[in-house]
Design a binder for these strands. Structure first.
Lengths: 138, 138
DNA sequence: CTCTACTTTAGAATCATTATAAATTACACA
DNA sequence: TGTGTAATTTATAATGATTCTAAAGTAGAG
């Protein structure tokens, strides 16, 4: 229950009213040590498991979209099949394990510095992200 | 009309029967000098413009999926809004212009070598791709 | 406490994509 | 050059993810 205040502040700072539903979503998303990768479906399942309160599908979508827009979540596109979100909102790299469909964060130190050699007149770089696809040596 | 034979061979080599519809799709996709990035919608529009023959939506999807499966096209996921395909099937990097929603291929020489420092026991690297998001300095 | 704007909700609507099943076509082989 | 069969195309239906709608409920300023 202690963390609730943190979540309430997080929501408030993003201009979102702290409702029971949104706080429950925050609990599932942010009450963990490692960063969390999820799909909407995965999140819906976890919410059902971990929470007494019912929560409608529309609210899950609305809240995740709001959190993403406000910068508390990051959207990650690996392929067209699944749309992932990430609680690590910094610009960072990923491993995607094609065998297990697992997505893993990489530290910047795991990949040497990347330098873009091409000149970009009139353009600003917003992010540079590397996706390393791996498969198990079955 | 000359190129049709090339397309027929391309389709045959992928185990696909060369039908009028598939040849028309090949014309739109491959009869160009630069690599081509497109969404299914974009392709459907171009097919309507450039071709007399009607082609059903299902055939467009079936053919693009078949060509992708056979390795003549590459799927590229930038965000959940649009699913892109690329006629450049090599492992390569991209610029995505968030202002114009344009996707541009990068040469390997445009980006310094990327070395993965993290050990990957029991895993094989399938691809390493960089996505550089840029925006116009309005 | 009360009012109003924001939020939630169930269900409908939409959009992209895939499945279905009947009509058509490619092409191997006679 | 026909013919039969399996592949292909097609219109349409089905599916799945996401968004919209409008009514009921709630947060929080005053």
């Amino acid at each position: 229950m202690n963390n609730n205040n943190i979540f309430i502040e997080k929501l408030r700072s993003a201009g979102l009213r702290p409702t029971i539903q949104r706080i429950n979503i925050c609990k599932v998303l942010f009450d963990r040590k490692k960063t969390f990768h999820f799909t909407i479906n995965h999140l819906k399942t976890l919410l059902q498991e971990k929470t007494d309160q019912k929560i409608s599908q529309a609210t899950v979508y609305n809240t995740i979209n709001a959190l993403t827009k406000k910068g508390h979540l990051k959207e990650i596109s690996i392929n067209s099949e699944k749309n992932y979100f990430d609680t690590n909102i910094t610009s960072h790299h990923h491993f995607y394990n094609e065998s297990t469909k697992e997505l893993i964060d990489l530290q910047d130190s795991d990949i040497g510095k990347i330098n873009i050699k091409k000149p970009l007149p009139g353009k600003k770089i917003k992010s540079i992200e590397v996706l390393v696809k791996v498969a198990n040596n079955n």
